[in-house]
Amino acid sequence: MKRSLSILLICLSLIAGLSGCYMSRYSKSGELNMADPAYAELMPFSANFDKALYKARLEVNGHEFSGLMMIKTSEGTNYKVSFFSELGLNFFDFELRDVGSTNGLNLYVRNIYPPLDKNMLLNKFEKYFSMLLAPGPSGDVRKTYLAQEGIGIMILMKSYKGKDGYISTNLIEPYKEIVNVGGLFKKEKISIALSYNAGTDSPESILIDQPGFRMKFSLRFVE
C-alpha cells in the first residue's frame, strides 16, 4: 500500500514537473554547425555595435526606477553600462568583461545607488547582460529545436548558469527571444523578448522577465 502510494506521488510530481518543462514546447531538430561568421550577426547587438541609449524602466520588489541607460562597447568584447534618472542622477555604472566563461560576462560595479547594491540583484544583472551581450551560440556545433506551435528555431547552448536558448524565426533575422532554462525539468528561468528596427546594430526594445522573481526590466531604444 505504502509502495503504491509512493509510486503515485512520484508519478504526480513527474507530471507536474514535465508540465512546467520549457523544452516541451519544442521538438528536436538535429545539429547545426554555426562556424559561419554570419551566425554571429543574429545576436541582438551586432559586431558593428558601438553604443546605444535606451529609455529604461526597472521594477524590482515593488520599487520602480526609470531613466536612461547607455550601453557602450569597451576594449573589444567588453561593455560599459550606465543607468541614470531623467534628471541625471546615477543609479549604477557597470562594466561587463569577457573573461572566457561559458556564454558569460563578468560584472564589475563601478558605482551603484545603495538600495540596488544587493548581491542577488547584481547576479541577476550579470546573467541578463550576459545573455544579451556574450558571444552566444555562433562558432560551434549546436543542438537545434523547432517550435511545436508557431514559427521558431531555438539554438540551445550551455552557459555558466543553466542553458541559454536563442530563438530566431528563420536564422536570417536576429534572435527574437532568449531564454534561460535550468533545473531537473528545464523550467524557464529568464525570458528576454526582443524587437528590432531594420538597419540598426541594436534592438529597438528589450523586455526582460524572470518568472518567480519580482523583477521586470524594459528598455526602449532612444538613439
Binding site: 553604443k51 536612461l68 547607455m70 557602450k72 558605482n111
Partner: peptide, 9 residues
C-alpha cells in the same frame, strides 16, 4: 546635459 564619467559620454 548629463556627463557620464565612466563611459566618457
Amino acid at each position: 546635459m548629463k556627463h557620464l564619467s565612466f563611459l566618457e559620454e
